[in-house]
Amino acid sequence: MPSALINVPKKAKRGDTIEIKTLMSHIMETGYRHTAAGQVIPRDIITSFSCRYNGEEIFRADLFPAIAANPFITFFTVATESGKFEFEWIGDNGFSETASASISVE
């Protein structure tokens, strides 16, 4: 069962730079491992992550097999107005998950 952990400050002053931390549970199978029988374990990774702040994309990342399991990504943004952060992870085998967090800006 995929689950996301999001850390966004609940409150911020207008103009403050805030840190956003995200973690999505995912195996991030590289496609380079073998079973004991010699069969390649097929790749299963998250390929794309994005974050929108009140509808506008503020951060995006392309992920590769070199990203560790349960991708943990942190980045910054300027708190401009109260509203909602929407996060989206897209990956192999139709993986698609979303999460959101709200912030109040004074």
């Binding site: 730079t17 805030i18 590289t30 702040y53 506008e56 503020i58 951060f59 990342a61 097999p65 070199a66 990203i67 560790a68 991708p71 943990f72 990504i73 942190t74 980045f75 910054f76 943004t77 300027v78 401009t80």
Partner: peptide, 15 residues
């Protein structure tokens, strides 16, 4: 990133 990031810094965990 973009100008809205405020600070050009990212963290992650790699293999």
């Amino acid at each position: 990133l973009g100008p809205r990031a405020g600070r050009a810094q990212i963290s992650t965990r790699v293999r």
